[in-house]
Write a protein that binds this DNA or RNA. Structure first.
Lengths: 272, 272
DNA sequence: TTTGTATATATGTATATACAAGTTATGTCA
DNA sequence: TGACATAACTTGTATATACATATATACAAA
């Protein structure tokens, strides 16, 4: 809590380096020890705000970890933790031996979150349901066999669903799943939630990770009819390959997202 | 579901909780002290690999931090750092008082990186150039005035460019910039790099962050002609709003990305 | 059966210390 | 002046310790 004495010359010499030596940082307030918000989170917010306000400028060096510790009355390790948050988020660039710098923002690109459909609907407070258009067991062939890495003829489950939000069809879904005779397919479960949950807890097929590819497309005649739109309208195609343990591929398929209802906003170098 | 404190029953009772008590983890090797790779990075990779191989299963609890420290001969703080990497990456879920669990993966959604065009071209070793289709000073009006938060009539720079990679047009770009009489516009600089670099180092207009929105679209006749494609083909539209310090909006515009040349892959819960 | 309490153990936060390793500025020597 | 060693920084890694806080469990009391 004790504000360390800062020499008057600091600001001048530091300025030549592009450092502001913390001048102005104090204006954003100090660390509230009584708060339940951890000190390292408070400090990382202060630094973020300093960049937004231009107190710390892109390309410039921020005060050293020791100096920040002195300014805010925190240990170097705690300061490191605050800085690390912003380094991980891509807002700062720490160079060993040199210092920590404000990154020049990449204004033409960024990170986008494509949310899980059902999760998104629930989090918005809306309802989501899945209308099952068809399920059947088919022999593996063509791209499905190739993508899943199975021999032609191996039995797969093929299904089509229409995912609806607020009573309106929003997403058209086609999936191929490994067929497991010991685990009967419960059609009732396909009315809600993601397909991958069918395998949750399965000893060998439980999903571990997935690879997704987001592509631009236009609605075909069939898709347009199902989604209540016109053919030729823009849409997203989200191709999905789901892996279980040992890199076993268990689901392959894709989602068609209506372009008039879906768009994706970039994450603001989010600090979690 | 009672749990006995009996040590002889540990393996069995633990199994009911989904814990594997580290059994099998050792098979993935230990920490190489001679390596230049930090211990916490090595451990986080071991844990990642354990999930991929199914030694640690989604929904299950991993060994406690103290136990991992015992197994691998590391202090608890070092173990925490390794675990924190995976928690931040969304692969693990740490619950205070309870334990750390392997997350059930979201297979229908994920994070996507839309790279900066010029940066991407350079990193691939290819060439990138920008063909300037037009620049002029225009009075602010309509959506541009609204998005930039300026009065109608304020002077703006309007420009159109065709971004090319490997000699082929890939992206069509339209931007509105705040006009600054003290900073003359150098048309020569518009042949390379992102537009926002025009303001880099500017005392008031230097970009600090940007908000992006990724939308699905189809090529119009003019766009198709410029990009050497047919009208009606799928494409991405990346709308961009660039902020300087104090939330001053300095650039607004959008990019049209050819759908046949661009698609975006999800990031694998990347651990940096 | 419910409620309260004690205990063991889990993760979360903060600090202090030590040393390693990379960068930069400076001073000395030829 | 130029080359080179070095001192004085910087961030990076690892450990130990303390306390706060959340959870599970066992067991006693009502």
């Amino acid at each position: 809590m004790g504000r360390s004495p800062s020499s008057m010359m600091e600001a001048v010499t530091a300025r030549e380096d592009g450092v502001l030596a913390g001048r102005g940082l104090e204006e954003l307030g100090g660390i509230d020890e009584g708060s339940y918000i951890p000190a390292y989170v408070q400090l990382s917010r202060i630094l973020q705000e300093a960049v937004r306000r231009g107190i710390l400028r892109p390309g410039g060096r921020i005060p050293s970890e020791s100096e920040l510790g002195r300014i805010f009355g925190l240990s170097r390790m705690t300061v490191r933790r605050a800085v690390s948050l912003l380094v991980d988020a891509g807002l700062l660039d720490a160079r060993q031996g040199s210092g920590t710098y404000v990154v020049n923002p990449r204004t033409d690109g960024g990170l986008f979150l494509v949310p899980d459909f059902h999760e998104e609907m629930l989090s918005r407070g809306g309802t989501s349901s899945a209308r099952l258009l068809g399920v059947r067991v088919v022999p593996a062939a063509g791209r499905a066999a190739e993508k899943l890495g199975v021999k032609r003829g191996r039995r797969l489950i093929y299904l089509e669903r229409l995912l609806e939000g607020e009573g309106e069809p929003l997403v058209y879904e086609r999936k191929y799943l490994l067929y497991d005779k010991s685990q009967p397919l419960l059609e009732g479960e396909l009315g809600h939630g993601p397909v991958s949950e069918l395998f949750a807890g399965h000893p060998r097929y439980a999903p571990v990770r997935s690879e997704l590819e987001l592509k631009a497309t236009v609605l075909g005649k069939g898709e347009a009819a199902l989604l209540g739109r016109e053919a030729g309208e823009p849409a997203f195609c989200l191709e999905q390959l789901v892996f279980a343990a040992n890199d076993l591929r268990v689901i392959w398929g894709w989602l068609i997202l209506r372009g008039d209802r879906f768009s994706f906003r970039s994450l603001q170098a989010e600090v979690r």
